[in-house]
């Protein structure tokens, strides 16, 4: 159950300006049947360059219909140059807010308006010029960047909420992370970079050996102990403690609090270290 504002409900149940305009000055089509929502926006200008009439047709959920209806109300009677400044946030605010998972509906409204203005001016749609990042929903990097900047987005999940990018097969999520970092001028965190999500068993063994050799063994040897890697089975790392460690009462603590912690930090955070008998 979505928590919609009364204004969203009203614009959904009683949508304003549904229909088409014959000989419209501007027509903007965004979305598609496959995507689950689509909007066609029409506007007609008067002699002074103001939007005399606006109509829409929308396929989609309640907030898509409400966003379309709100948009037509917002642009009617104002000059085209003013309409051009409307952002997705303005549409969401006009409706008293939208659930965060539905913000893409307001973005769709804004993009339809841009497409209709580009149609009127006979120029290609600026946003469509970019590189297509999300193939499922046909979202370009320019659209993603703008959504991040204008809405101060922090996570990929938020990007999906606003642009739908990443909401289909999810293949573009690494690219979205990259764009997010680019826009927010953040360097790649080093540790994450060293720990990819999936490792083959061979890669795991190599990395585990590296960490043991570089950090764990030197520390244990100081106390007269040592450690040997016996086996890696899935996430289970079987080791044997040697020397002083083998008889130390605290060896379990060493294993869990020190060895496992180090390996989780530097190899894979799901690893479980156990002592082989």
């Amino acid at each position: 159950m979505w928590e919609y504002t009364d204004k969203v409900r009203d614009h959904f149940m009683n949508p304003r300006n549904v229909g088409e305009i014959e000989n419209a000055d501007g027509i903007g089509e965004v979305g598609s049947l496959a995507c689950g929502d689509a909007l066609t926006l029409y506007f007609k200008l008067d002699d002074t360059g103001k939007i005399a009439d606006a109509k829409f047709k929308t396929f989609g959920c309640a907030s898509a219909i409400a966003s379309s209806s709100a948009l037509t109300e917002m642009i009617k009677g104002i000059p085209l140059e003013e309409a051009e400044k409307i952002t997705n946030q303005d549409i969401a605010e006009y409706l008293g807010g939208l659930p965060k998972e539905k913000m893409h509906c307001s973005v769709m409204g804004r993009e339809a308006l841009e497409a209709a203005i580009a149609y009127y001016r006979g120029i290609p749609l600026p946003m469509a010029e970019g590189e297509v990042v999300c193939e499922c929903f046909g979202v370009t990097d320019l659209e993603v960047k703008r959504a991040i900047e204008e809405n101060k987005l922090q996570t990929v999940e938020e990007i999906t909420n606003f642009t739908k990018a990443g909401g289909g097969c999810g293949k573009c999520i690494p690219r979205l992370e990259e764009i997010l970092r680019e826009v927010r001028h953040e360097a790649k965190p080093l540790i994450l970079d060293q720990r990819p999500g999936r490792l083959t068993t061979l890669q795991k063994i190599k990395r585990i050996e590296e960490v043991l050799e570089r950090e764990v063994r030197p520390a244990l040897r100081k106390d007269g102990g040592d450690i040997e890697l016996i086996d890696v089975d899935g996430d289970f790392v079987i080791v044997s403690l040697r020397g002083a460690c083998g008889t130390c009462k605290k060896s379990q603590t060493t294993l869990k609090e020190y060895v496992e912690k180090k390996l989780r930090e530097q190899v894979l955070d799901t690893l479980i270290v156990e002592e082989g008998k």
């Binding site: 089509e29 598609s32 049947l33 995507c35 929308t58 499922c136 293949k171």
Partner: peptide, 24 residues
């Protein structure tokens, strides 16, 4: 359907635009 852009286009023999290539 009255407000769906695809309902009438369906009668014109056009089904949506193909911009979206869903992989699903």
């Amino acid at each position: 359907r009255e407000m769906s852009p695809f309902w009438q286009s369906q009668h014109k023999g056009k089904v949506g635009n193909s911009q979206c290539k869903c992989s699903c």
